[in-house]
C-alpha cells in the first residue's frame, strides 16, 4: 500500500485515535504551564534579589535545568523520587518535571522583562514611599508584562509539543498513540 492509499483508507481512523490522547497532552501542558508561570516568577525575583546567596541558588537552578535534557529530569523525578519516599503518578511526575524545566526558561523571560523597565520607575515608586515589593507589583510588573507576553506564548506552544517526552514514563497521550499506529500499519 502506498502512502496516500493508507491515508485515504485509514486517515479518519488515525485522526480519531490520535485525538484520544489530547486530554492527557492538554492536562500535562496546562499543568506544567501554570507551574512554570508561577514558579518561574519566584526564580526570577530571587535572581534579582539583593542577597547573593539567593541569587546564587536561583542561578544554579536555572543553569541546571537548562543544561540537562528534559527527559533525564523526568526520569530523575519519576524513578528517583520513590527512593525519597514519594511516589508520583506518571501524570504528576510529567507535570512537575516539565514545570520545573519550564520555570528555568520562563524565569529568564521574566528577568529580561523586568530589567527592560527603566530604573527611574522603581526610584520614583520608592521615593513615593512604596516598598521594593510594592514597586515591583504596582509599577514594574504591570509594564514588564507586555514585553514578556510574546515569549511566554512562544514557550507555551513549545511546551505543548514537548509533552511528547512524557510517554517515556507511561502517560498515554498523543505520542504513544502515534507509535501504536505506526506498528499497526
Amino acid at each position: 500500500m502506498g502512502f496516500w492509499e493508507i491515508i485515504e483508507k485509514k486517515g479518519w481512523y488515525f485522526l480519531t485515535t490520535l485525538l484520544d490522547g489530547w486530554p492527557e497532552t492538554l492536562t500535562v501542558a496546562i499543568g506544567a504551564l501554570i507551574f512554570a508561570v508561577i514558579f518561574g516568577l519566584v526564580v526570577a525575583l530571587l535572581r534579582l534579589s539583593r542577597w547573593r546567596m539567593l541569587r546564587w541558588v536561583s542561578t544554579a537552578y536555572v543553569e541546571f535545568f537548562r543544561g540537562t535534557p528534559a527527559l533525564v529530569q523526568l526520569f530523575v523525578i519519576y524513578f528517583g523520587l520513590p527512593d525519597a519516599g514519594v511516589n508520583p503518578s506518571p501524570m504528576q511526575a510529567a507535570i512537575v518535571s516539565l514545570g520545573l524545566n519550564g520555570a528555568a526558561y520562563l524565569s529568564e523571560v521574566y528577568r529580561a522583562g523586568i530589567e527592560s523597565i527603566h530604573g527611574g520607575q522603581t526610584e520614583a515608586a520608592l521615593s513615593l514611599g512604596m516598598t521594593p515589593v510594592r514597586a515591583m507589583r504596582y509599577i514594574v510588573l504591570p509594564q514588564a508584562i507586555w514585553t514578556m507576553l510574546p515569549p511566554i506564548t512562544n514557550f507555551a506552544i513549545v511546551l505543548l509539543k514537548d509533552t511528547a517526552i512524557v510517554f517515556a514514563v507511561g502517560v498515554v497521550e498523543v505520542m504513544p498513540l502515534a507509535r501504536f499506529l505506526v506498528t499497526e500499519t
Binding site: 527603566h118 527611574g120 520607575q121 526610584e123 520614583a124 515608586a125 520608592l126 521615593s127 513615593l128 514611599g129 512604596m130 516598598t131 510594592r134 509599577i139 509594564q143
Partner: peptide
C-alpha cells in the same frame, strides 16, 4: 519606605508611570 513618604522627590526626567 515609611520615612520616604515624608520626602517628596521630583526627578529631572519626570519618571511618570
Amino acid at each position: 519606605a515609611r520615612e520616604r513618604r515624608e520626602i517628596g522627590f521630583v526627578f529631572q526626567r519626570f519618571n511618570l508611570f
